[in-house]
Design a protein around this nucleic acid. Structure first.
Lengths: 232, 232
DNA sequence: GAGCGTAGTTGAACACGTTCAAGAAGGGCC
DNA sequence: GGCCCTTCTTGAACGTGTTCAACTACGCTC
């Protein structure tokens, strides 16, 4: 017997064949649309299946749970974010400007989904959840985001302590998670407060980062970084 | 017609009469016990009702949702925490020692419920949730906790910038929320990493707080505090 | 005691996410 | 075509949190 097509190490249903891929996309697209229209909780699996013209069980053949359907959302948002800040990060400049651009475009990219994010957040926040930003399943999205912040740091003309510089992309990603946490809970119209947070916290971060290379702060920076590495 | 008993402004079922209060307690106590034994998700409303010897509907007569049953847990943990750190905070001393004591006893108080907290966390993290630490329903618990941190600050012999000192209790409460966030996701045995986080971050916080009263940092401290007040 | 209104209680019913045994469709091999 | 194995699809069924119309128990007024 000859296996015509070898299954990949991480095989998921319907990723290999044309038919499966088609149904998969159909379900994802329908889900993403409904999530955006009605929020996470109000979009039932039955509704997704019905709108996509398949059975409930079929949706579960492709996705282990309702949560997994949301990874697609992450990718969508990140695509928009990458596109939006590509221009701002193209040419080197002061750290503060690059950071502000990266964070603000991030908030912009998420903006259309504020309602959805609110209803979905509880699922993402759960410790073992596959859609938690810290989970293994989210690794691709997370690493892509860290990579973007690395580009923020790499193109910065500001002088930064080398040890801090190495860890900074990941720390900034963490800061973005914090901002997102605030954003999700932000009930101000148009999430004005979150934008204000970014606008005014970036100069502060810049100032602290700038201070990092002075001798006086070396011990604190060292200690903080080593603690971070230890507990990461 | 004469109303013999005026209903209080925030009247909840079964709070006034003896019979109601009895059933209410019975349900809460049963729920708290089962939560601790089996976790949040595995403890069904049917199981709580059955174990308490009442009907499901009766539980819902006293508590609007399963979530609301958890406020009792908060109180339990906080009672333990208050008791545990009372002694350490009784006599004035260095800020760093008082803070460490407050945070470590907090972690100890939560420790028995780590499993439960993990399964429950997703509910507490939801923006509009009544059991969110930022919600109106949690105000009593929250204020009680802030009060404890105020005592930490008030009894501190360390010199602290006055403006910072005023906001510090709330900021420390926020820090505790951050530590709790880490703790919930901490899978190390016995949550060793969280203890390490407290042990090593308190000196750092202490150092930063100590720096706050030097002239050089006044602008940064001022800006950060005003931003915090604005976005709170 | 009779009547009445509130507080307390019940269990069936609903919609949900998820599971699963069963079957249908498709393609390679004789 | 006939066979077989994998891929794909179905819809009923399970257990969940929550709701609700109906019922009972109690305390008050007459």
């Amino acid at each position: 017997m000859v296996r015509t097509v070898a299954a990949p190490a991480t095989s998921e249903p319907g990723e290999s064949t044309a038919k499966g891929e088609q149904t998969r996309r159909l379900i994802v697209d329908t889900a993403v649309r409904l999530f955006g229209e009605q929020g996470y909780d109000k979009t039932t699996m039955r509704a997704i299946a019905a709108a996509a013209g398949v059975s409930v069980g079929n949706a579960y053949y492709y996705f282990p749970s309702k949560n997994h359907l949301v990874q697609a959302f992450y990718t969508t948002v990140q695509d928009a974010h990458d596109e939006a800040c590509r221009h701002a990060l193209a040419t080197p400049g002061p750290f503060v400007d690059r950071l502000r651009a990266a964070l603000l475009t991030g908030v912009e990219a998420m903006a259309p989904y504020h309602g959805f994010a609110g209803s979905f957040f509880k699922t993402a926040a759960e410790p073992g959840s596959p859609v938690s930003p810290f989970s293994a399943d989210s690794a691709p999205t997370r690493e892509r985001s860290v990579r973007m912040f690395r580009s923020v740091v790499d193109g910065a003309t500001t002088k930064i302590d080398p040890e801090l510089r190495a860890e900074l992309p990941e720390l900034l990603w963490l800061a973005q998670m914090g901002i997102t946490l605030y954003w999700v809970h932000d009930t101000s119209p148009g999430q004005t407060k979150t934008r204000l947070l970014v606008e005014r916290s970036t100069p502060l971060i810049d100032r602290l980062v700038g201070m990092s290379r002075f001798r006086v702060f070396q011990p604190v920076v060292r200690e903080a970084l080593s603690l971070y590495r230890l507990l990461r």
